[in-house]
Amino acid sequence: MSFELMSNLVAVFFTMCIFSFLYKDNPFYQMAEQLLVGISLGYGLVFTYERVFIPYVYQPIVLKHNWVLIFPAILGMLYLFRFSRKLSWLSRYPIAFSMMAVGAGVPMGIHAGILVQMRQAMVPLETTNLVLIFLGTIAVLLYFFFSKAHTGVYGKFVNVGKWYMMIGFGASFGLTVMARISLLIGRIQFLVDVFGFIK
């Protein structure tokens, strides 16, 4: 048995373990599920060590003697006090340090989430499609405005927003299903190739 075939058989075994869940929850699926979490975590640890810890903590402090970086390293270690009952408050310091960046979220959020969208929405209504997009955007926004009762003519207009959203959700659903189907085809193709049914 060649090394490549053995590697493929290992992949086939784990693929079948996961697919076995389609029949019902079983020990093979449970085993593969836990193994997947463990392997992903181990992979994440190794890459965090190699790509983050070594270049941004170890090398600057130990090799370049940039001693100031000992402080953020200690700050990071305070995360681990989350598990202590008496000293868990210390973990608030690194959390607060990372939460500082929320300040940038205000102007950048206004720009990316609101201004850019509004600029794209406020174009000359030259075609029917542009009118439909404009009306749909307004209707969807008003659908989530609950300070005015959704009744009468206003309620009927707001209801249009719901129909727009249903079409949007349907389109997203269709695209997601197709993405999953293509993954499924890829896995089945892999199994077929390994077993040599085609070629």
Binding site: V102, G109, I114, N129, L132, G136, G168
Partner: peptide, 26 residues
């Protein structure tokens, strides 16, 4: 057409709502 017109309008409306909510929370 579904993707470019009604889908775009609904996604834009939702994105504006999410943007406003995100800024308010920040």
């Amino acid at each position: 057409w579904i993707l470019d017109v009604p889908n775009l309008a609904s996604k834009r409306g939702i994105a504006l709502g999410v943007g406003l909510g995100g800024v308010a929370t920040s």
